[in-house]
Design a protein around this nucleic acid. Structure first.
Lengths: 232, 232
DNA sequence: TTTTTATAAAATGTAGATATTTTTGCAAAA
DNA sequence: TTTTGCAAAAATATCTACATTTTATAAAAA
């Protein structure tokens, strides 16, 4: 009685599965997405499959060329830089707004999610820990962004997050599996929270921009050594 | 040898036609988009039609409910305000970047498109004049935005423009068909160009934000008197 | 009225037909 | 022998028509 959108048709399912497979690297950038292969893999007809693909094209995760089929969108250091720059600008702007407009319940949400994130250090299997830290990290940043009060800005933010996801995945392992990197992040987050609650929106904006740009050289490095396409 | 994306399959065509029909008001917000009706109207099969519809859903111009079909996305004063606010924030941010980063060829582009826009006053039929002013107005703002140097930010800007299009359409007639309103706009544009070229990026940002927000009360008024759904 | 049941309408999915692109095989020229 | 051009075949993408499932409508019974 609560959920508004009951995902149920095959196109939706195919969309979700394929998106996961692409962002998690089951398909490599540039790979041809054969209709026959996809149909077999997901046990789904060509119609719904086409629908799912064309949605991913809109999200820039897949490219299409008429009569020649679909491919996984390529990745490049150039695109990495552009995506992260645009994303950092947007997030910084949203943060400035959030500090200026956010009320007490927003502050509470930020503090709560920051605390939850800081408690991930406990015992976990490697993969489990990665997933947990990632989801809480995302929740933390979302809690901050929510304060901007604009649904459309949050939508834009989400589209950028999705476009960054494949690149972010590269950074994630590097960070979560390094005690030093993780500690650095924890520091940054602490500082962020302090500035957020201080009410200095201009400073918060600058700091968020820096925070969002930090992963760029790390990911660049990884992509350069692996030759752009991250083969396993 | 120049065009990269040769639009040719039926889904693309249906997408373009339906999008035009929705933004130009051939379908009213809330209207049910019957498969049979669409197939007949565009002389296209159900498969490609579905594909076109699901793309418009991603763009928020159409809503979908599983097993119950598609509808033209509703319009509301609330959404109007949110879209325009988000758009103004984004455009203001892009403008600030453009002023800071733009080179001489950017300045030249801005001046040229401003001049072209100012010359629309000549003799034209009403509808012709409306189309011409609109396209040149868009070109003017695009020329400014291009200076930001980020393809992704320009993409975001475009998605917001598309989401605003139905509301903008309401404002357009009101403005273009009033000599006084048109003169006011011309003034605003002159001032904008002055500040842009002065290099004061902070002032440019503020001014662009104001400029983008101006239409909101006008459109609100129109929607309120017409009861939100603009029946002809 | 309210509920139930039957009927019609519509959305969604599958399979097969058609059109396009790519590959392959072969022959002629260098 | 190697390369180039061409034609046939295979692979692939795309579309339409039909079948299935779900939802909406209307009539009949309580």
């Amino acid at each position: 009685m609560s959920d508004k959108e009951g995902k149920s048709n095959l196109a939706d399912i195919a969309y979700g599965l394929l998106k996961r497979d692409i962002t998690e690297g089951a398909f490599i950038p540039g790979d041809k997405l054969l209709m026959s292969a996809l149909r077999e893999r997901y046990e789904i007809g060509a119609g719904p499959m086409r629908e799912a693909l064309s949605r991913l094209v809109a999200e820039r995760l897949v490219t299409a060329e008429s009569q020649k089929g679909f491919r996984v969108a390529p990745m490049s250091i150039e695109e990495l830089k552009d995506i992260y720059f645009a994303r950092a600008q947007l997030e910084a702007m949203i943060t400035e707004l959030a500090v200026a407009r956010g009320d007490e319940s927003w502050e509470a949400g930020v503090i709560a999610s920051a605390h939850t994130l800081s408690k991930v250090t406990e015992v976990h299997s490697a993969e489990e820990m990665l997933g947990l830290w990632d989801s809480r990290h995302k929740a933390f940043h979302l809690a901050i962004a929510k304060g901007c009060g604009s649904a459309k800005l949050l939508e834009l933010r989400l589209t950028m997050l999705e476009q960054a996801e494949r690149y972010r995945q590269l950074w994630l392992r590097q960070t979560v599996f390094s005690a030093a990197a993780l500690e650095t992040k924890r520091d940054e987050h602490r500082q962020l929270v302090d500035v957020l609650l201080s009410g200095d929106s201009t400073k918060a904006r600058r700091m968020m921009f820096e925070h969002m740009m930090n992963p760029v050289p790390i990911i660049s490095e990884i992509m350069a050594t692996r030759g752009l396409t991250r083969g396993e």
